[in-house]
Amino acid sequence: MNKIKIGIPRSILYYYYGELWTNFLKKINCEVIISPTTNREIMEKGNKIANDEMCLSMKNLLGHVFYLEDKCDYLLIPRIDNYGVDNQTCTNFLAMYDIIKNLFQTPVLNYNIDVVHKDTEEKGFIYIGIQLGCTKKQALEAYDQAKKQTEEQKQIQIKQNLQKLKSKKNKLLIVGHPYNLYDDLIGKPILDYLKKLDVELIYSDLFYHQMTSKLSKQLSCELYWKFNKENIGSIPVVENKVDGVVFLSVFPCGPDSLVNELVIRKIKLPCLNLIMDDLDSMAGFETRLESFVDVIQERKRKHEQKNNLIPTYGKL
């Protein structure tokens, strides 16, 4: 018997759950098809399908789904409402299931997360399992195993990320959603350019989320976007260990435009706010990044000068 093919777009939620989904689906004997890394064709296709008010990442998602159309039996697109009280997601996460269901022919798996109304992640996975023909027990077992496996992986990544704080190079904290940071056409050119300038990059999404979520309260108590809270909560953790913060968001991201602006006013580290759109030219970004790294270098030098002054003064 042919395996059931499940298509996962390499966009938005893939960067949070890709590993877990793949592990789970393989355990219940399904074939997983993941769309390729974003390229021009996918982005342009997404642009064409999308409505003009969607953010770049959503447009991207539609391009990826278009690629998967005809290549799989089911699509895996969750509908995420919230992860509990004051832990909501952007409304786009709530809408994408319905948008894609209406725009494309391929059936979409039912997967709903609404913790306030007791629809938890575990329930969501069991439901997927049942839709794909396994029993509740099998699905639960597969979920538990997949979850454990993914958690272990994640812990390693987080450790590697935090390890970089010990580096002697200039260190920058990159604050942004993983689906923007690691996307080939959105964040990757920026991060690659920074690496070329010999900067150590620490990513805001690879931290212990329970901790960052709590720490975000130091910056603001009123935020209710889960992913944004986790991102900005990384700033207090590294405040004295990095030389600057780069905020990377896409146009017109609602939560980011509010949260980043708010945070920039409150923190003392040098900040750079980059808003990406479907721009092909890197020249403008290169000027901003290069001068930002220059400024950081200068500040460091000043700091060192200050520190050197004290002993000479003491000798006198």
Binding site: P270, T287, R288, S291, D294, V295, E298, R299, K302
Partner: peptide, 8 residues
């Protein structure tokens, strides 16, 4: 004489 901040 040292750049401490800039914005563009």
């Amino acid at each position: 004489g040292i750049i401490t901040d800039y914005s563009m």
